[in-house]
Amino acid sequence: METLQNLLGINLGFFVWKLICVIALVVPLTIFVAYVTLAERKVLGYMHARLGANRVGPKGLLQPFADLLKFIFKELLVPTKASSKIFTISPMIILICALVTWAVVPLSPTLVFTNVNASLLYVVAISSLGVYGIVLAGWAGNSKYSFLGGVRATAQMISYELAMGFALVGVLMVSGTLNLIDIVKYQSVGMLGGSILSWNFIPLFPFFLVYLISGVAETNRAPFDVCEGESEIVAGFFVEYSGTTFALFMLAEYVNMVLVSTLTALMFLGGWLSPFPASWGIIGTANMAYLVLKVCFLLFGFIWYRATFPRYRYDQIMRLGWKVFLPITLVWIFVLGAWMVSPLSIWH
């Protein structure tokens, strides 16, 4: 960064450096997401006792690129009487919101695009904007199916955002900071410091479960994917989209999946901390590889749920969000508060 600033002046050098950082973050992320789509097809295939995509490249490894090429060469259709501006903007809104959130997500104590104090609040705020893309896509298509999908998605995302927010309150209470790096750091200290027992997911187990399930609902994945329920409303909010715009929706869905998995890993599974004692040499030290492993495990979970559970009925989804998760988190916030001030507290 200093060399660039010397070369191009303070402001321009800073700008160019950040641009390089953005590319260095987004390109690997996109490639990772592309392979998550392939992994989903393969894993679902094996769970259904079939092979999955295996024709393009060795063992089907080039399949995501073939899909991308196919999407690019398809025609972009805008339905008659659709609001064409909003129709084209809404997939961009979804993808931008999904990608912009990564600006504050740390991958290791030093590898972070910007280290802001309120990074957790930033993540929650920006990811709550993504629902606009969905609801506008549903409205702009001027189709009843897509409108119904948009309405369902909005109601569902707002309901589960609350439970998710309250689950985060528990994490905030024990770490006392909104900074994601510090949240990971505080999981390695305390009475059980340094061991897997001090990671948030064991003392805060109810919050962890609520967050994990709300994360699936928030990304509109199976078994909460009523907003794109094929059997009732064809494909939900993106029923009118074709070609590249459709690809943007898919990309945003998978980026959001990776994001939710990363946040779960950071806040509950100890991020880059190692599950082994520090005396074990290289496998005992905190490492970015551990974060990637945890994220991959959670992503596998996403695919696993899809292969395992049947789709929820809509009233069941609403009931789970409002009448089950919200009371659980509210009660546990009080329990956690009492635990923290009691002599049994493990967070000193």
């Binding site: 309120a118 705020a125 609801v135 707002i158």
Partner: peptide, 25 residues
């Protein structure tokens, strides 16, 4: 004032305006 700014987005844009949009549609 990052806290107020992010809360504005979270509460008004992320929740209130979505419901507003919902009703207007």
């Amino acid at each position: 004032v990052e806290f107020l700014a992010l809360t504005l987005i979270l509460v008004y844009v992320g929740a209130v305006m979505v419901l507003f949009l919902f009703v207007v549609m």
